[in-house]
Amino acid sequence: MSLLDVSDVRKYFPIKSGVFFQREVGRVHAVDGVSLSVEAGETLGVVGESGCGKSTLARCITGLYDVTSGTIAFDGDMRRDVQMVFQDPYGSLNPRRRIGSIIADPLVIHREGTPASRRDRVRDLMALVGLNPEHYNRFPAEFSGGQRQRVGIARALALNPRLVVCDEPVSALDVSIQAQVVNLLKDLQTDLGLTYVFIAHDLSVVRYVSDRVAVMYLGKIVEIAPGEELYERPRHPYTAALLSAASVADPDRQRERVVLRGDVPSPISPPAGCRFHPRCPKAQERCTVEEPLLLGDGHKWACHFPLEPGERLQSRPVDE
């Protein structure tokens, strides 16, 4: 069995309205039938644009959200062994509490150790993530964004978890600081044998940290493959479009023609058939009615008309 098995998980958020008795007037299909597994010791990257459901998926895996349907099986105690690193280094630490007590939270809530032993453990954790243990009594406001993210990482490691779900752990940080935190996460993985689910919208960071990468679009995984395979030979047109639109700091790169028109549709009423069809340059009649399944071996994609390896995605003839 894998360390984590997610099978056909769906998470819908009701949209309510009304003064006294709230009626459900619609549903956000945030995660809509996601299956994946994560092996011990690997890093699974999850990429996608806003509204694709990647953060919701993270919160389902860590138990913050109850799933609407489907199952999440974890080989261990989920509350202890699955921990999360949050995106916002400013929002994820309580501004009115001292760093030491924030990092000790998991220990206190799980009734682990004595106050003295917890204090020692917190100091060890702070040293482990590159913080000065002497700063135990400081408040979050006295730390920079990168240091706060280290505090968040120390908190996530307090209970010696096996799986750490990182939800956009570096996207709020400056480039030079991003690299520090990414290196720290990599080193901790090697030293502690951690497994990561690494969620981000920055494709180059995900490529660097991940063994395998899943691409999400409107609540579904459209493609999942070993990292290099996905970046070099994308099969789903959306993956190809995302890669071509990525920000690359290379002045000699030919500016790619924009291959995708329009925005991501609303997850409240996702398109029928393949959810990507309204924007897809390769869409045909079949895509509008029949939803493609995520199929393949190792490299899976959900598309009726996938790209051949090496094929470049052509933009659709102008239809604006």
Binding site: Q83, R97, R155
Partner: peptide
């Protein structure tokens, strides 16, 4: 806010979240 999510994901009770995590911010 993410900091209440963080303690909730650890299984903290509603009372603890209200008293230890929310109340100090209301002061």
């Amino acid at each position: 806010r993410e900091f209440t999510e963080a303690v909730r994901s650890l299984g903290a009770s509603p009372l603890r979240i209200m008293v230890i995590d929310v109340l100090p911010n209301l002061v």
